[in-house]
Nucleic acid binder design. Structure first.
Lengths: 349, 349
DNA sequence: GCGCAAATTCAAAGCGCTTTGGATGCTGCT
DNA sequence: AGCAGCATCCAAAGCGCTTTGAATTTGCGC
């Protein structure tokens, strides 16, 4: 069932039917009703490709997921981001096109997307420092919104990001207020922009109180349970072990907790943990009362915001870069408590 | 830069250029080379919409992700499945179109997809018992492959699935071989097909040794850390607590472990755990030696298989249903050991 | 009853590609 | 020389929609 069929079935021209369905003013209200009803009955849906060809708009947004051996980006947060964005897309009649692209092929992939013309814009995931995709997309003239920011980029561009530095500064401050001085950082890979900012927030908070970050207490890596476990186990064996941890993900925090318990210590009493929590659908920080004290910011919400921003950008004839900085809230759970009195570890002065 | 431009730039007709690029035989090899080179230099890429319109094929596969209040399917395994499928798509020149659709709208969504004509086929995710999508898609004549199966469906259809029943039978057998008799099941939601099969495998294994499944030792729910924790905590307080757990996901298993440790018990000695492990990129069951004894089957691999199967199905003019049953392997980690001698719990019985 | 503007409707072109059904030239054979 | 057969190439139609420009109808003031 196509436009022509529908039109001839109604005894109208395709022109009129098209206009009736697309809400143009120059069509009689009676006719419009008739058309709408016939379309509904016939279960008519305009062919997306033809529509796209005719209008020049694809009504679709692209997401390019880099995948590589360097870092496994089949990221737990990706699903939630997509879900948030998807809500907006389906509400506004957009399709979402996903491309899984090898890291080295990114340049080619974006150019191809551009010339294939099946999307009106793209969302950039997981920006790194000086991310080359930003100048590339600007050059290609393809509208885009970055989920995160890219330190070092001078070009203006649109983004939605969490105030990572601020979140980690608050987390660190919170621990210092509780008397902690040896605070470890279990971070994501530090070529990723968010990880850079988180470390900065952590380092600055320490510095403000005259402390310097101890390299032995900072690790970076894939944010997995194992990472947290390995890092914490090693650190807790140091001569002067940390009394608190700041971690970049709930999974890492869970790993830290396991190491804490294996060491015969009690979380929230002997060792405190503050984690960042992306508030994922399937990885909740407890239902109701939080398990971990955390800086929380919903990735799904970020997905919604980014999608809405991009569509806004696309429909604006002379778009100027937009951006939105989301603040994480600090929720207090059972993983934090006052620093243990420094009955200094045995054997230490 | 479009076909016409490229053609006139080469002094050829669009027809010839099209044929040259698409590998038709009736074009001179010299011409073909010239065309190919010019296309490369101009960074020419055929417009996907126009091509689709002309050929009637979309060169895209749809994935409809149901999202609902009933169950949060922003599923941790989804990302990995997509990654696997995406590899195949990009290799074969297909796009992946994701639709996030409200549960109640599924019927409408599939019909819409059908008539919008922007995909050549779809992958069905998370089939439930008697899943209505299967007859619907068959009726619509839209090629599809199911990730999983749908108990109760009589129509033949194509699927890729893990032998869940067998995996859980083996897991249960393994524990019984170690002497366990009180074995709990922490399962996914039992309107999902995989959960039904897992329970069946578990129940059958018990029955084969003359045991009947104790309803008190079976729970179903979202497979989260909290679920595992809550379930295990409750069960470990029973007068006759389980000595072993079979869980449906690594996250649940992590929750069970936490409850075990909170109860002052040792995993692998006092309480054994076998879990199913989807071998996700960011949620590894240890690196190298497994943490948990597990039935392991890569969801990413399943994604690859399903994608390849669907494309195969699409290109076959008279497709007959295909299917592929993957077997999970049992990997032995540190979470299992002989059942403790029944020096019944202190203060009990 | 006439002219003009507003309200409706339509025919046809065009989006960028593929594909059908010829053209055109050339070779080799009779 | 004449023709079949092959290798190449091309013009034009068509995919299903939107949109431009024009035609037709209607309403209204005089």
């Amino acid at each position: 069932m196509n436009l022509k069929d529908l039109a001839s079935q109604l005894g109208l021209s395709p022109t009129t039917v098209s206009r009736a369905l697309n809400g143009f003013p120059e069509v009689n209200e009676d006719t419009r009703r008739r058309v709408a009803e016939a379309a509904r009955n016939a279960n008519y849906r305009p062919n997306a490709r033809a529509k796209g060809l005719a209008t020049g708009r694809a009504n679709a947004i692209g997401h390019v997921i880099p995948i590589s051996s360097r870092h496994e980006i089949v990221n737990p947060i990706f699903g939630d981001f997509i879900a948030g964005a998807g809500e907006v897309y389906s509400r506004l009649g957009y399709d979402m096109i996903l491309s899984i692209v090898d890291d080295e092929d990114q340049d080619r992939a974006y150019r191809e997307i551009r010339s294939k013309g099946n999307v009106d814009g793209v969302i950039v995931h997981g920006p790194a420092e000086n991310d080359p995709r930003i100048p590339l997309l600007a050059e290609l003239g393809l509208p885009f919104v970055v989920h995160g920011r890219a330190t070092g980029t001078t070009l203006p561009y649109s983004w939605v990001d969490v105030n990572s530095a601020r979140a980690f500064r608050r987390a660190t401050d919170f621990l210092m207020d509780l008397g902690h001085r040896r605070i470890a950082l279990v971070n994501g890979l530090e070529f990723m922009d968010f990880a850079i900012r988180r470390r900065r927030g952590y380092v600055e908070a320490l510095a403000e109180r005259g402390l310097t970050a101890d390299p032995e207490l900072m690790v970076q890596g894939e944010m997995t349970e194992t990472q947290g476990h390995n890092a914490a186990r090693a650190m807790l064996r140091l001569p002067d072990p940390p009394t608190a941890f700041v971690t970049s993900s709930l999974l890492s925090a869970m790993g830290v907790r396991r190491a804490v318990e294996e060491a015969g210590l009690v979380m929230g009493r002997d060792v405190s943990i503050v984690t960042h929590d992306d508030d994922l659908g399937y990885l909740k920080n407890g239902d109701g009362e939080p398990i971990f004290t955390a800086t929380r910011s919903s990735v799904r919400e970020a997905g919604r915001k980014a999608a809405a921003m991009l569509i806004d950008l696309i429909s604006d004839p002379a778009p100027t870069p937009r951006n939105e900085l989301l603040d994480a809230v600090l929720v207090v759970g059972n993983s934090t408590g006052p620093a243990p009195q420094s009955k200094a570890p045995i054997g230490k002065g």
